[in-house]
Design a protein around this nucleic acid. Structure first.
Lengths: 367, 367
DNA sequence: CTGAAAGCGCTTACAG
DNA sequence: CTGAAAGCGCTTACAG
């Protein structure tokens, strides 16, 4: 019972053939799809013509094209993209590599990428949850064998590379929210300007004594945000009320620091720009305990727009949205351009962030 | 300049050929990989033998096998899995479909799945971030064309189905953290027993007046957890201190409910089992404001082990870990069994959860 | 133990 | 406008 023969078995409703396998390593019941030969035969044309009709290429009478497409629909035809990929030397497939086991950054990026790629008919392989470099390399190899057309590499901070060797990969690579090697293409949020705008927002609301509480000084993002904060102050002729305060990216850091700031009876700030939403949450909680009113006594801005924090904080946080979804989408589109051989400049793209205004600064509140 | 000819162009260092394309829709510079023909030729064997040597099948002298494998390494050979897939009628590829835009549940599931599949040489396509059913269907279709061997469908609650028609898909499907249709295979956490164990934990610590504050009553999970709570009480001859309190799955619900519970000077509970970590966080915050000590005055258990909440709460939450990563892994392995035609029983699998003990209940604390 | 040949399901020069 | 044929890179009966 050859496969060729199986292909000729009578059709069921939607052109799907049910077949009993003779091999014991195969499913007992397998659904055999219609092939382009089936479509061509039933439409009374050659395979060549069927292919052209289905792909909207070549010239032919509308009648023929429509008939072929109609038959394809009747048979519930699905072109086999492995066959197509083999001849076109293109798999219409991308790989997404990440070391973010937590998902905080990866999922929005993945969603933006996946969604944009769907529109262009390309699918994306996910490699997540690998902690050891060897396993990550294994995954990369699997993607090579799958002949992905390109790779997007994403991480959990903009100043670290993934532990994979991508140098002699022979396929286009794009970096997102990850360190981007010289000569490559990368996408990151514009931390500097986001911080500057957030600070300017506070200044516009009349705040003058603006403190910056942020995360670990080993993170480049922390320094960029600090620089943006300083720049906004400077442009407005303001001196920093205090040095930027580095620490963990945690609620606890925000909480304790805010407490310390107000315990000393000294001069008090009227606003705090925080390096992330968790710190901001800690800060707000501290003030709640101390009976200090947000935003009346002090205004707070966060960073990340991690909604589960930003919205749960009382009052809800005004915070910077890094646009990770958009980052994923942009990276995918750039990758597609590279794959198609379009000329594209190397370097780091810093994409605009958006300040989401809620209630923690007073002024107008959008939510 | 035919492709065949390109294949014969001289080798670079690792057997990679750099080639200038003559077609304007192709990359200007493309890296051409070595094929099995190249390996066979260089090893002085037939393609058949090369294939068998590489796949560890057939009988041949160790010398031959090793020589072929050595050559493959020299040429940096990567088998083209599209070609292999075409002949084996198997893509070694899975699809992961989700409607969880938030990523709370999906990423752990995806990581567990992806990681387990890597070990078996299968890759997983991710479809995330689609809100409209039409777009999700589009994605599903793309996966059909990619000839995925199977599909895992995951969501954000166990009592809802995704808006896709999977009935006449003709490929194995497994459900994870999602409603599982009659006759299908599904994996969910064992909410009932997890809740029962969590409650038993409180009882073992000497608590007797245990309140249950949980999420929306429209969620099946809420009812299962409530039932587990009741069962544990019943087994210990305890009556519920109060009716289960449904509400939103939010901090605010926990906060307000906890406040209400203690404002009335009436009899007070000595423990609260919460339907998720956000509620628990709200509860703990309320007690902090009221000067009620956790765990001394009252013990708290959460649900989800969402670390960014559970660990940030003061004191850190004792909470149920649903084992989503394990769920993803188990689903993948089951799917592989189905794909390989192994007999497998339909129905819902309820996987064990794990109580993670921190400080919010007193007693021994592991972290 | 080893290899020539057919075939997986497509696309695409090439020829009519 | 249409089709026969070659070929993408593999695996696997089948035959020696």
């Amino acid at each position: 019972m050859s496969k060729r023969y199986l292909n000729l078995v009578s059709y069921f409703a939607e052109g799907v053939k049910i077949v009993v396998s003779d091999s014991n390593s195969r499913p007992a019941t397998v659904v055999q799809r219609a092939t382009i030969r089936d479509v061509a035969a039933r439409a009374g044309v050659s395979v060549t013509t069927a292919s052209r009709a289905l792909n909207e290429t070549g010239r032919m009478s509308d009648e023929t094209r429509l008939r072929v497409q109609q038959v394809a629909k009747e048979l519930d035809y699905r072109p086999n993209s492995m066959a197509r990929g083999l001849v076109q030397q293109r798999s219409f497939t991308l790989g997404l590599l990440t070391d973010d086991t937590y998902g905080r950054f990866t999922l929005p990026v993945a969603a933006g990428l996946s969604s944009a790629m769907t529109d262009r008919g390309v699918s994306v392989f996910l490699s997540a949850g690998e902690k050891e470099p060897k396993r990550m390399q294994l995954n990369l190899r699997a993607m090579e064998e799958k002949r992905v057309d390109g790779l997007v590499i994403t991480g959990k901070r903009i100043d670290r590379q993934l532990p994979v060797d991508v140098s002699k990969l022979g396929m286009p690579v794009v970096y997102v929210y990850s360190k981007c090697p010289q000569g490559s293409i990368g996408f990151v949020p514009d931390d500097f300007n986001a911080a500057k705008n957030a600070t300017q927002h506070l200044i516009n609301l009349g705040r003058r004594k603006i403190v910056h509480i942020t995360g670990l000084s080993s993170f480049e993002a922390a320094h960029l945000r600090k620089a943006g904060w300083l720049e906004a102050l400077d442009e407005n002729g303001l001196a920093p009320f205090a040095e930027a305060i580095f620490g963990n990216w945690t609620e606890e850091h925000g909480y304790k620091t805010a407490y310390g700031l107000f315990e000393s009876g000294a001069d008090r700030p009227d606003a705090i720009f925080c390096g992330n939403d968790q710190i901001a949450r800690g800060v707000v909680d501290a003030f709640a305990h101390m009976g200090i009113k947000v935003p009346d006594d002090i205004a707070i801005v966060g960073f990340d727009n991690w909604e589960v924090f930003a919205k749960a904080t009382r009052p809800p946080l005004t915070t910077v949205d890094m646009g990770l979804t958009c980052l994923g989408k942009s990276a995918g589109l750039a990758l597609l351009d590279m794959i198609e051989g379009k000329p594209i400049e190397s370097g780091l793209r810093k994409l605009n962030c958006r300040l989401v205004v809620r209630q923690s600064c007073g002024g107008e509140a959008s939510e």
